[in-house]
Structures are given as structure tokens and as C-alpha cells.
Amino acid sequence: MRKINQEGFVSALAGVLLATMVGTPAYAQSSDKPLIGFTSTALTNPYTITFHELIQGYGKAHGYNVLPTVDSNSDAAKQIDDMTTMISAGVKGILLETVDGKAVKVALDRAEAAGVKVVAVDTGPDQGGGKVAITVTVSSYVLGQRSCEQLGKIMKGKGKVLEIQGRLNNQVGVDRSAGFNDCIKKNFPDIAVVSKPGEWIEDKATTAAQTVLSTDPAVNGIYLASDSAYLPGVLNVLKRLGRLSKVGEEGHVPIVGIDGSPFALEQIREGYLDATIGQPMTAYTEWGFKYLDAAMQGKTFSAGPTDHGSEIVVDKSGNLADVLPPTTITVENASDTSLWGNQGQNN
């Protein structure tokens, strides 16, 4: 075993070296506009990729000087290192999609010391996670709540829901579940909820859906904490069990999700998914840039209602947050081109 431990150590070192090499972008741009960096959580799913495309596209269209997007690989330590590299590369502002709301403090402290302004988009710092100019986000709790309102209405307040949760050591996962369950308890007391963790992993969610749906015939509704990760597998399970039918057809199992992925929008149009609650990604992008621009000019923001239908509040981290309203997507607006799920390159 000693031999293996040594090997493990050496290979961990090798891994770190490799990861560092892979992660360093080329800083070779010059322009009179201030340099801006964008650090993404992970470029491995349609959501973050579309976000990356929107931010780069908006930056280009509005004459910003944006560095190539940096992929954190869902690794909090890597995000900190990447932000440090950006700061030493001379950026004046950073758009931050946070991997770990607490760990990011190190990087935010460095940015503050260097006079670099940071605006968090989609996910911001947590309690004790350092200072940002503002976070542009949506409430995960409200996303869960909206899903409950949709699903409860479709199920006419009766029955049993299979809830496939997100990762539960992650605030987004916890809040999407809490928002859904609190609302069910309050508004639909005759609906029971069976909750299974899916950890944002396709395979885990598919197995949970397969197991619960095949052993509990009482389940007549499904809530997915992420339609982008879970929906393809869950629809396949229903097909396998002979229970896949369209909205309005006999035996249809209503499904409501969160995210509004390209696949989810397509399934809404085809009639297999009832509804999903989407993040307002276009507004994230627009307001992310506008706030960052203002912050770089030395402006500050204050709590209260905004001119674009949202409200700036002080969030748990003590930072300001512009909490935008999510979009409820049903068959009526599933083709709307302003939805992020309809905007990616390959849709």
C-alpha cells in the first residue's frame, strides 16, 4: 500500500500541473476599453455554455474588451487561481459566476485590494464570501415555488409527486427543493412528495425515477430540480414503463422542471413536458455588463425597486443583489426567442 500512496501523491501533483497548464488563457488583447474577464463555473452543460456565448456576444456587440471565458471546471480553488491570474493580467472588472460562495472570498479580497470591480452573475458569494459590487440573480427558492404552483395547478391539488432534487451540499439545490416543498405544504396539502437526491447527475436521476415510478404506482406527478440534466433520462424511463403520453392524453404524468434547457423547450412544444421555470439569462447578461460598467466608473448602488421590474435587496452575504423575476415557460411561450434555451448556437 505504501507504494500506491507515493504514486497517488506524485499523480496528484501531475494532475495539478496539468490542470494549471490547461486552464491558463492567452492574454493578448489590447484596446482602449477597459479589460473585462468572465469566469464560468463549468463549460460542460448547455446552460453555462449558452451563458458564455451570450456574454461574449454582448461584449463584442457593445464594444467591451472581454478576455476569453475561463472555465473553472466546478473547482472552487481553480476559480480563485483564475481570478488571481486575471487580476495580475490587468483586468479592470470581472463578471463572476461563482463556484463556491464561501471559498471565493480569497479571490474577491484580492480583487478589492487591486481595485478590480466584480459583478456576480447567476450565482454570487455566500455568507462571509467577500464583497462584490452587486449580484444579478434569481432566487432559487422562488424557482422551486413557481414549479410547485405550476405542478399543483396541473395536478388539481391531489396526488403524489416524485421530486428529483439537485445536489444537497449546494445552496441552489437546497433552495430549489425548499421552495418547492414549502409551497406544496402551504398551498396543496393533499399532494404528497417523495424526494430523491439526483446530485445533478443524469444517471443517478434516471435510476431514482426508474425505481420510484416502477414501485410506487401512486406517483402521478414529477418535479425536476434541473430539466437540463434530468429530463432526457426521465422521459426514457416513462417510455420504458409504457407511461409516456402527451399533455391532455389519457394517463399523462405531468412534469414540471427548472432551467428551460433547449431540450426542455422542445419537449414542451412536443407536448411531453408541461412547464418549466427558466432563468432570465438575457437579463443577467445585460444587467451584468451595465452594473459592471457603472461600478468601473466608480458608481455604487442601493437597495430598492429598480426600473426594470425587479428589486435590489441585501442578500445573505451582505452584498446587494438585483433579484430578477424568473420566466414561467409553458406551451404558450416555449418558442419565444428571448428564452436562453432558444438562443444557443445549435438550437
Binding site: 463549468a42 460542460t44 452543460n45 447527475i201 443524469e202 444517471d203 434516471t206 440534466a229 432526457p232 433520462g233 422521459l235 426514457n236 431540450f263
Partner: peptide, 15 residues
Amino acid sequence: ILTSRIASVSANQGA
């Protein structure tokens, strides 16, 4: 097999 089970192929399957 995994791909046919989850009816999709994603960049982080198997992680």
C-alpha cells in the same frame, strides 16, 4: 449502455 439509459450523451457522464 449509459448513454442509452439516460437517453442523452453529456460531457460529464461517468464523472
